[in-house]
């Protein structure tokens, strides 16, 4: 099930593996992703702390990790084509994380929709 963080990332958590990206709302606010600094495979990440950075058409944005754990795979396609995030933020996953802990207060899609209203 897809869950959302207040900092506008999504995590699709299946067992101990989470696929992570940014929300459609966040992509809209960024108004054009021009570059992403992907995390590295093997990188340890902490829920609520910086996962990586992303350059938008106006400014650079921090992407926070919705879960704690270790990065096990990255979406290298975004390296050459970061606009995939604009096209479909839910399909354009950033990385997969082997989860050790999930951030408190992750929201369901419904809750997130209400949160961004």
């Amino acid at each position: 099930m897809i869950k959302y963080a207040k900092s506008h990332e999504w995590a699709d958590i299946n067992g101990n593996e989470a696929t992570v990206g940014i929300s459609k709302f966040a992509a809209g606010e960024i108004a054009g992703v021009t570059m992403i600094y992907l995390p590295e495979v093997g990188q340890e990440v902490t829920a609520g702390e910086k996962l990586c950075e992303l350059e938008g058409s106006k400014s650079v944005e921090d992407i926070m990790s919705p879960v704690s754990g270790k990065v096990i795979e990255i979406n290298e396609e975004l390296d050459s084509n970061p606009e995939l995030i604009d096209d479909d933020a839910l399909a354009a996953w950033i990385c997969k994380i082997e989860v050790t802990a999930v951030a408190d207060e992750l929201m369901t899609e419904e809750e997130y929709e209400a949160f961004i209203k």
């Binding site: 108004a31 054009g32 021009t34 058409s57 106006k58 606009e83 604009d86």
Partner: peptide, 11 residues
């Protein structure tokens, strides 16, 4: 307005 839709598209 800083943008209407997507800045890259407007560009």
């Amino acid at each position: 307005p800083v943008q209407y839709s997507n800045i890259l598209e407007e560009h």
